[in-house]
Each structure stands twice: as structure tokens, then as C-alpha cells.
Amino acid sequence: MNMPFYVSPEQLMKDRADFARKGIARGRSVVVLAYDGGIAFATENPSRALHKISEIYDRIAFAAVGKYNEFENLRVAGVRYADMRGYSYDRSDVTARGLANAYAQTLGTVFITESKPLEVEIVVAEVGATPEDDQIYRLTYDGTVADEHGFVVMGGQAEQLGRKVKDGWRENMSLGEALRLAVAALGSGEGSSSRTIEAAQLEVAVLERDRPRRSFRRLARQVLADLLADGAKTSSGETSGDDLPPADELPVGTATPGTATADTVPPDTVPLDTTDTGDTGTASTGADTTGTGPEGPADASPTEEKPDERPEAPGGTPETDR
């Protein structure tokens, strides 16, 4: 007598989540962090052609970890989405929130309906007119969206690296400080072993607040090396035809390292389930938020599972996901 083949939904979701997480954990991490002049993205990536960080639109950038072909597909879709929207309406009508919603629904649907979930984790970031207007959304393989504040670490040892970035990050860091923190975090491996990553091994890009129109810019190797050197002497930065001011000239405000504790704001994360975005105040409804789709209720289940899966960090702080 054969028993019918049955897998409980809980088990099915857990298996899929484990599968996706394993795939993502194999990749190298990406650090995204806000600095006084915008948002910086850094990852270890020796390739000059296969990018993990890309421009989506004027003020919006994309960073991803996981399977290259899968996130590349999502990146291209994002560029098409943004360009189509900007062409149909206006350039100012393309927002990171709209794109994050579209990505979330796509990831969520694939997680539930396809034979395998996408093994990717994505950050969609938009630089605003002021630091308060900056938006950083982190999307996981199951379509969960988190509205992050200040910084995000994803990929390989996200939890460990995230802790390191959390300790060092504060508001209004200069670009040099932010990148040194990001690179130090990327170089801190398992246990106490840490290594120095050369500029040539890094892929670094920024969304610069003060740039007109297209704010995305990749940092050339020499500029990056100068910024990482220690920020004291960056005179050769100009030779590469770059308009970036040396790190020590960037306004750092009152938040010098000595007084940083007063300014430090603990990063707070608002975990949002995609199906809830219509109800939460942080992600107010627009044309993009159409409420609960047909896959809505199913979408919620992986999120509800989280406390069981990640007992080490309840509350969804940035370092929980791996």
C-alpha cells in the first residue's frame, strides 16, 4: 500500500528557503552604506565586466549577490521597468519604492510557483535630496522587503560582516571613512583572520547626491586606492579626471570619530512583508502597490517562518539574513 506523497507546506517553504540561502551564502558579500554625500556600494569582485553593482536610473542603483544569471536578469528587467516608466511618464516618476515592490512581487511569485526559488538577494537604493530622503530597500529570495536605514550587508558572511559595519557606521561619514569601513568589513573573514583587499579586487560605486541627473558613478581604481589609503593624502585623485573632492575635504559635520557616540543612531530595520506594504505607513501606496495579489496569502508564509529559522536574531536586524 503506497502512501500518497505528501510534503507539508511548512516543510516545502523551509526547504526552498534553505536552498536559496545556501546558494546566496556561497557568494561574496556586498556592503551598501550611506555616507554624507550619498550612498556607497562595495564588494570584492576582480572582474571589470561582470558587475554586481549597477545603475538603474538617475538616482537609483542596484546591488546583488547570488547567482549571476539570475540577478543579471532582474537587473535588466529593472532597467527596462525604469526606462519604460520614465518614458511613459516623467523621469521624476521613477522611484526605488516602485521598483522594490515590483522586484518583491517577482521574487515572491517565483519563490512560490517556480520549481526553484531565485538564489539572489538584492538591494535597491535611491539617493534623495537630503540624507533623510535616502532609501535603501533590501529584498530577499522569497520577496521579503526590508526598508533599511544606513547600511546593508548581504551575501556570504552577511551576519558577521554586518556586525562589523554596524559597530563602525554612523551618520554623516565621509566617503573615505565609509569605504574604509566597508572594505575592512569585507576583508574580515572567518574567525579573527582578516586580510587587506586591494583596490584592484574591489568593485565600488556611489550614488552621489550632488550630481545632476544621473548620480551613479563607478570609482576608478586609482581614485579608490587614494580614498582607501587613509584619506589624508589624495592628491593624485585628480589625475584620473575625477571631480570627486579628496576625502579629507568632504564635509564631515560635527561627527568626528571622537564625538561619534552622540550622533550614532542605531540602525533600525523595518521588515515589511510585500503583501503588507499597502498598510504600512513607511511605504505608502502608489500606482505600484496594488494590495494583495492572488499569491498574497501564500507570500506571507515564509516570512512568518522567520522566527523559527533565524532564532539568533529576532526583529529582523540587518545581520539576520544570510
Binding site: G78, A102, Q105, G108, D288, T290, E295
Partner: peptide
């Protein structure tokens, strides 16, 4: 549009 599901 992606009106019905919101996905791409």
C-alpha cells in the same frame, strides 16, 4: 502597468 499582480 503590472496592474494585477504588481510583479514585473
Amino acid at each position: 502597468a503590472d496592474r494585477t499582480t504588481g510583479r514585473l
